[in-house]
Nucleic acid binder design. Sequence first.
RNA 1: GGACGACUAGCUCAGCUGGUCAGAGCAUCUCGUUUACACCGAGAGGGUCAUAGGUUCGAAUCCUAUGUCGUCCACCA
Length: 758
Amino acid sequence: MDKDSISKTFESKEEEIYSLWEESSLFNPDNMEKYLQENGFNVKKPFTITLPPPNANGNLHLGHMCGYSFHDAIGRYMRMTGHPTLLLPGKDHAGIQTETSFTKELQKQGESKWDLGRDEFYKRCYEFCMTNAQNARSQEKRIGLSADYSREFFTLDPRLTKIVYETFYKMFKEGMVYRDKRIVNVCPNCKTALADIDTEHEEKRGIFAYIIYPFVEEEDKKKAMERFGVEGITVATTRPETMIGDTAVAVNPKDERYKEFVGKKVLLPIAEREIPIIADEAIDIEVGTGALKVTPAHSPIDFEIGKKHGLEVMNVIDEEGKMTGQIPERFKGMGTIDCSKALVKELDELKLLVKIENIKHDVAVCERCGTSIEPIISNQWYLNVEPLAKKALEAIKKGEYKVVPSGQQKALEYFFENIQPWCISRQLWWGQRIPVWYNGGKKLYDWLNENNGKTVSDYEETTGIKANGTGEIFLGENAPDDSDVWEAETDMFDTWFSSGQWPYSTLGGVDGEDFKKYYPTQLMVHARDILFWWSARMIMFGFYKTDEVPFPATFLTGMILASDGSKMSKSKGNGVEPQEVFGKYGADSLRLWYYSDALPGSNAPLREEKIKGNRNFVNKIWNASRFILMNIDESEIDEIIGCDVKDTERVLKTKEHLEKVGKYIEKYQFNLGAEAIREFFWHELCDKWIEEIKNEIKDSPVGSDIRKEKLSELLYILKENLKIMHPFIPFVTEAVWQELVKLGLAKGMLMSQQMMSL
RNA sequence: GGACGACUAGCUCAGCUGGUCAGAGCAUCUCGUUUACACCGAGAGGGUCAUAGGUUCGAAUCCUAUGUCGUCCACCA
């Protein structure tokens, strides 16, 4: 071939190169192991990373794709140092998020999920995910991800579901998973329960209404009149609509103002019910009037107070945020905000409204859709995670697990220390159905569960409903028999209940062949916003099922921002399309930029000039290599590859360099690694050594010993540099290697070369 | 309200256990057509390392306050 015809700029042939890798099937660690054996290399311990499965409901953004360049760099490095390496890819069904986005998709087409029905919805949503998953997969390949796609999993794969179900059965038998009636966050838009962690807090403008609850007894009214100037006790609330569900007023026992009224009764306005005044330490004397209206059904604090004092729980708001229950007819079916306004108006007419303050306060909103959540009492499935969190904490203390950067580790410790029972049921149509059947229906089971010790006939007596079954529960994918007494649980698992089991479920579960060989894994890499959702859960499940930590470290990737330092978002229109970057600068340039700029715990504004700078480096590699090739005469090739390279100063420095960069990768210091390969290749090899060697062979004729010696040294240095740079920038380095192969100066693929000195 | 992190050149950041640590890339400026590369080469300017104290022979590096920004957690009605 004609060496001089090689292009002056690196024209990225990324697809071609990726195909070359894929065809070798060495992304599969079993094949890699064979390859190492057959070529006489020492086979080291397998290296495994289960990759974060992107949500199967949309395209990948730049952050996803760049994240994979960390997995890939360390994976390629491990592969080149003798480890059969498994980067295990997947796609996540992402329960709520997908259900929300697919529902929107349907609306655009003038359809609704209610028209489709559960089964059809599930089927269509599945297809929707499959299409998107395919896009995501091709985008992963675009960044150069060397994942074993023969092992790819979708989180709803029946093989995974089976493992997730087994975990659930085991937990149920051990009493870790149970049904409980508690106050839970409900998103009126998604119409499902949410775990605390699925909510966010936003500052919103609201009102603070001061309402008078008049005393029942004339004597108390008189006293109150003397003391407060009104005939009752004044409470302050941000949510007047909940007042019709009040079952007490609570004050602090130390509060001198109210001491003598504790135990007395007030008449709840509008609802016209008598409720007691109780004393509880939890009440803050400073806030509002120091008197708290207690609505156990619709406020977490009130729920706790209610439990302590045995208060009645009155549900007045339903899952859709509408007024319901035993309330005056005129409010039924009203939205909470409308009801609040109506109530305030009536109270004002009754002269029971003292004032309304406008305030800003934190409101819990749905993490996925931003709707204000309603705290509602309901029966849900819970998982007692406390014992597992304890084990996780111990592992952190013993140094068996760490977070990079370490600052985030403290936040994780705090999360584990204060962990609450995890609500794992979601009222969705999309996901894994909780594999439970109720004999005689769910209501019966829950009633018996709530009323410990009572019987089915007690149920019939109390509720006046005929029970059509025994109240038993059956765990299994299918009902135990064909009788129609078995009612299926329709709730789905929280998506993290299955993705939390990712490290072993994707390896075939604890009995799987892959599990024996590739578990525990070596690292977890993901964005920092899902540390508690994902890593925390994986660690806990890991302890539960395998009695060890599933990976020794979580590396948190930095966040990519728009060039002005703000968050990229579709609504702002400041997002950058991955396609655009790849088209203009290539995957290597983008990767290199990410390694050096997106450090764990830091933000990385995407600047075009910086990616351009890296593109220049990629091109420099191409040209320096081209120059070296041009210098070698065809007649010298055989002797040059047969020539023993002496340990010159340059060769020794190169070996040191490889070792140094290897250490950086092993310590996850990708930024330092990227800086080092750039510095060494560009300013040592190109600027100094190539210039030196130019001089050293300047006057020597083709075929002379000095040329052979110097050029073989240079070739050796080039090859070693390509190897150590390959984990960072796989495409250009492989492209150069293939040019060497064409000339007979190298063999095989760079991807599977071994770095012998490491 | 609490926790954690950051504050180093115009910009994004390296500087781990105190003594060549005042750095890199990008940007800026000057010069340069040499066997590859102008997506290049040679060189230059630019920072009292947020502020105030303290420990020390010596601090960007340790301690204590303060300020600014960010992230996370939290039931303040």
